[in-house]
Design a protein around this nucleic acid. Sequence first.
RNA 1: GCCGCUUUAGCUCAGUCGGUAGAGCACAUCAUUCGUAAUGAUGGGGUCACAGGUUCGAAUCCUGUAAGCGGCACCA
Length: 661
Amino acid sequence: MFKISLPDGSVREVPRGSSPADVAAAIGPGLAKAALAARVDGELRDLGRPFEGDAALELVTARDEADALELARHDFAHVLAEAVQALFPGTQITFGPSTDDGFYYDFAPRDRPFTDEDLPAIEAEMRRIIAADKPLTREIWSRADLIARWLEQGESFKAEWAGELPEGEELTVYRSGSDWLDMCRGPHLASTGKLDPAAFKLTRVSGAYWRGDQANAMLSRVYGTGWLNKKQLDAHLLRLEEAAKRDHRKLGAEMDLFHLQAEAHGSVFWHPKGYKVWRELEAYMRRAIDAAGYREVKTPQIMDARQWEQSGHWGKYRENMFVIPDEVPSVEDEGALVSGKGDWMALKPMNCPAHVLIFRQGIKSYRDLPLRLYENGCCHRNEPHGALHGLMRVRQFTQDDAHIFCREDQIVAEVQDFCALADRIYKDFGFTYAIKLALRPEQRFGSDTDWDKAENELRDAVVRAGLATPEYGWEELPGEGAFYAPKLEWHLTDAIGRTWQVGTIQSDRVLPERLDAHYIGEDGEKHRPVMLHRAIFGSYERFIGILIEHYAGKLPLWLAPVQAVVATIVSDADGYASEVEANLRLAGIRVESDLRNEKINYKVREHSLQKVPHLLVVGKREAEERTVAIRILGEERQRFMPMDEAVAWLKGEALAPDLRA
RNA sequence: GCCGCUUUAGCUCAGUCGGUAGAGCACAUCAUUCGUAAUGAUGGGGUCACAGGUUCGAAUCCUGUAAGCGGCACCA
């Protein structure tokens, strides 16, 4: 007999061979039905898997939502694989995990990749499998038997996978009914019928590389979203619709902020309104860096290729660089445009080398350090075309880039200061964030000793700033650093919970070495400065994209391209409206007037859709009383106040957060 | 770059079997002067992404190219 202790403190004795399912049944039929899986000594297991000794047992039901969702999604993935093999014989199965909102499965199709049009049939087949309530049973196979079985079935991917698991290890296999099996660590629900057939939806298909490696075969991935019940699924689908409404590409067009077109694909055409937002951010950032002891510079857009060779970019980064011949193009109709004999130049993909060149001008003393050089640096990177995405991933972008040249003993303090600066700035925009440390990648410059030092300094600074806690999402990411330095990364969380990497600080000993930057120390000798690369917005383009989505287009007053519209009800108020407009403009408010011969309903609707924060309505009454009726975007009630008071109030409201008292 | 899908008026989208292009919104003109999310009428607007091919005839079928979208890989 085994002693099984339950969460309420009671202990039950069960015979050998019993499983959590037996315990559930003994407690009551309700629980037996509700139980989905078991936690045995803390480990999530199948309900039907026998105990191996005395154990602490917790039964998992739909109330344990995280566990239940994970189980259901994993099962949906298996059912998906079984359905696809039933409908498309010859399709190989590979791998299919759960995701944040559902599941996917990667297949190697026999003759063609799957398309969206295949999804309804696959969904229907999945529902048949769920309705058949096939038991899912766990079996233990030897590695050799399993590989033999996969090869016999023509499952070469599965065989490859199994072949790489440790020799002699027993592998778990789950059988669905009597005929279909997949290699899997489990656990699973007791049977397919535990899934709610109305709680999933196949969402899309895509390509994906086998084992995530570009060098491998392209598989065909089917994505689904999966939940415990239809209500959850519907809520999720609604969330997706809401997210689509705040897509910055859609809002950017609707609000006339910017556009993209094929002739300059990957580069942004900023319209007047979008550029207002940009300029407001630029002004904000300049105030921040001026106060933090940075000095702004501007450096060349194009430099000789030899400079990029020396910095190391030519070797490690060339595939992302735009290269330009230093040659006048031929004006002949026949023949090549350029001879290719001229020198090569390149558009800068980064600002760092140019900042080192500024540092190198003149002799620097240890007294000059730290030297913080800031640039709104316009960079060009020839990104893989499939990577481009609205404002988030572009080929021309402007970084809020700075390089801090400092002594070894100043690094930690500088990084700490940066953490504080980033914290204040992100909070001004209403973001919460997570900090991550990206460690050395496989392809890198510099000695392991330097990498040890650099990684430790960044870690130390975050620890000292008290930010290396779960609350700040602290996490270390092996292999994710840049080729010249480890990175601290700031990942913002927006209003609907998505995360975006924007800020970074990297401590670099490689570039100062390669470009021979030095300062004279107290001892009169030459020393190598350390260079901290850092950004807070990341790029203006991406940051604006994130802001649009975060605020769903309703930018805070200080950032709104048009802060107020004065709208008339009758043309008799035109003169007064123009007066109100002039006064607001004089107070520095970005204001427009709408004197069109349209109904006030029409004007309210139009400016609301344009996300104008304040609509000042003036009719006959306001003109006579010299007041305005202010309608704030998203509010039902309006405020009435004298014009002068309204101007003063708006002026105060429109202040940037760093300028408020 | 890789896989799949898409590309028709400024925007959102119809367009059947291959037979000479359609709506709503927007825009222009006219009327309307109205109190908080669409006033009405009239009108103009298209090399059906681009280049080839099949056909008596192509928005429609085929091939290629480009861009967009969803992923993968890569990344601020």
